[in-house]
Design a binder for these strands. Structure first.
Lengths: 371, 371
DNA sequence: CTGAAAGCGCTTACAG
DNA sequence: CTGAAAGCGCTTACAG
């Protein structure tokens, strides 16, 4: 850790410990001097305090402009006890979903005049959660937003955050902490129902990761899939475990291709769908002619796969905006609201779904897959 | 903007304007009281100052532990003039490259005990650059790192950052500001030479975006491609303009498929390569049998395309680490270093490149593409 | 090795 | 409508 060099000056009684050779940025007193008022008045103008004469206000604003004055956030934070900074704990920040949410939170925060401090979250272990949250608290954030599938209890998280405003973006909607999320059960239903309505007898499912503590995103999608199947009295095949990665989709695809009678697959995200697609194609199994496929997320690549992938889209920007509202409400009220904002997903129909082979003997894709 | 409620207490002479009903977190003086020392001594212990007796140190540490004391960053920042916070300006944060770099910077910053404040950058216009940088300065960051293809001059950026440490992660290595980047010319060469060595007479290129100010990533890759072709006396076909998106790759692919004699394509990133792949396949043109293809980035999807995509990988984590070093050096020296760290890219060979059709008549892929 | 004092740049009741 | 005073929680030379 760098240590400041010893003071180069001899021990002449200096009025201030600051380095005198460094030009310090203008402070509020400088603005006050130029404007010919006290620094409190400058503060009032800058904070839109009620009673300030228009003339004074103009004077101050001119001085601010002239000096290029920028308020010192640290001083303000020290005086008010607020930093106007949000702390974000983000897991798998390079994945499309988390990156999009982070982006949404950022934009919303900027509009609300808040800064965003980001810390990566390698896992949702209680210990890691505690350590990373404490990093954020040390930085003096006003609230923490978590972009991670934290366990529903989130005991560790609440404890770590102390009484600080807290909102979770991928948690369970009936959990203990405030949260904003897309209805994951609806995601699963939407995908599965689309496949069922196309005429498939049943739908296989490649799941997301499911830890011992439970993942809302993963479990919710699986539950929706199960419900949609059960609703129509369809058989529920055993779910194939994945972990969001293309590789896990590929592995699941290799299993699927060996089974008889698979005509429809719902992968819990687009990356896995891509892996499934690859495994299927490798064995000469065509999508959608032989097997229909649906993913989740609508990653930018989805529309340009072969075939263009039908998927379920989530409005990440809205998640960001809503979470900012929840955070602001907590900050203003000084307490958690037990607010749960649940957003609806949207089906994006492209070309990876088609009725099952054999039901429409006249269609071209009935021609045997050669390869 | 929320305004604090008026003081609920009658005008009893209160020693402090703080709300007395709120439990305030322990401050350094509290620790001092418990440890039976002065708060300066506590400060010394916490900052690893040289001369503190082991006994005192232990006493203080115990008190810190007991109270769950956490230093107040705002107060420290105010006193030292340093916030131990990095400001990051990030463009296209949902793309794999920028997201990975951001992630790398974060990890490196965390290890160096720095916080990271992120602001999105919608464009590299002088005005936007100024506005967003000013947001960061207002938050009191110690340095700004820019994840964006800023123009080489970066005049606006340097002006906006004032004298603050500044490092650009996707800028030109011979620009005016400090920077860390992967050698983009080498990226272009690597991809193109691989294709040439496989026996292709020439290589077509789908470029990244190229603004009027110039994009190092885009232009560098194109220059490398051009050089590699010129080196072997190959004809240089007109580059096809793209913008990193799968859609632009698809558009370029539609052009390519109509041209005669195209056997090899170098797309400036994997997403565009995916678009090219799609366009080619749509017209019955096989990869790699009919056309070989190379991308850049090694996105997680690359290994699971059909065929698995040969690409050029950049070590984003290293970029993050190196940039942290440069920033630290600037902070310590108090001046920019004109440091340029240039990292080498790496070719990842998979299955999208093969010798051109016709040169090896015995091979299986010579069988005419049916479809 | 340790304490008293001053200062960092703001905000907030309190007086005018 | 505006100024004087105190305080936010630290760090930094300066004395012991």
């Amino acid at each position: 850790m760098p240590r400041p060099a010893p003071d180069p000056l001899p021990s002449v009684a200096a009025p201030s410990p600051r380095r005198p050779d460094v030009v310090r940025p203008p402070a509020m007193t400088d603005v006050a001097t130029v404007a010919g008022v006290s620094h409190q008045t400058v503060s009032r103008v800058l904070n839109d305090a009620p009673s300030v004469s228009p003339r004074t206000r103009a004077l101050v604003l001119a001085a601010v402009e002239q000096l290029g004055y920028r308020p010192n956030t640290a001083a303000r934070a020290l005086a008010t006890g607020r930093s106007r900074t949000l702390g974000v704990l983000c897991m798998s920040g390079t994945l499309y979903g988390p990156a999009s949410m982070l982006s949404g939170v950022q934009a919303a925060a900027r509009e609300a005049q808040y800064g965003v401090m980001v810390v990566d979250l390698p896992s949702t272990d209680a210990e890691v959660l505690h350590q990373r949250t404490s990093l954020l608290l040390k930085q003096g954030v006003d609230a923490v937003v978590v972009i991670a599938p934290v366990p529903s209890s989130a005991e560790a998280l609440r404890a770590a955050a102390g009484g600080l405003p807290l909102v979770v973006l991928e948690g369970e909607p009936d959990g203990e902490v405030d949260g904003v999320c897309v209805d994951q059960v609806a995601v699963g239903r939407l995908a599965t129902e689309h496949l069922v309505q196309a005429g498939h007898r049943t739908v296989w499912h490649v799941t997301g990761p499911s830890g011992p503590t439970g993942h809302y995103e993963s479990d919710g999608r699986e539950a929706g899939w199960r419900q949609a199947l059960t609703d129509v009295g369809a058989e529920v095949p055993p779910p194939l475990p994945g972990d969001w990665s293309p590789r896990s989709g590929y592995d699941a695809g290799q299993l699927l291709v060996r089974m008889a009678g698979v005509t429809a697959v719902f992968a819990a995200n687009d990356q896995m769908a891509l892996g499934v697609l690859r495994a299927l194609r490798e064995r000469g199994c065509r999508v959608p002619e032989d097997v229909s496929l649906v993913g989740v997320d609508d990653i930018p690549e989805a529309a340009y796969l072969s075939p263009p992938l039908t998927t379920v889209r989530q409005d990440f920007a809205a998640v960001g905006r809503e979470s900012m509202q929840v955070v602001l409400a907590q900050i203003e009220s000084g307490a958690r609201q037990r607010a749960r904002v649940v957003l609806a997903p949207e089906l994006v129909v492209r070309r990876s779904v088609v009725p099952p082979l054999g039901d429409h003997p006249g269609r071209s894709w009935v021609q045997a897959s050669v390869r």
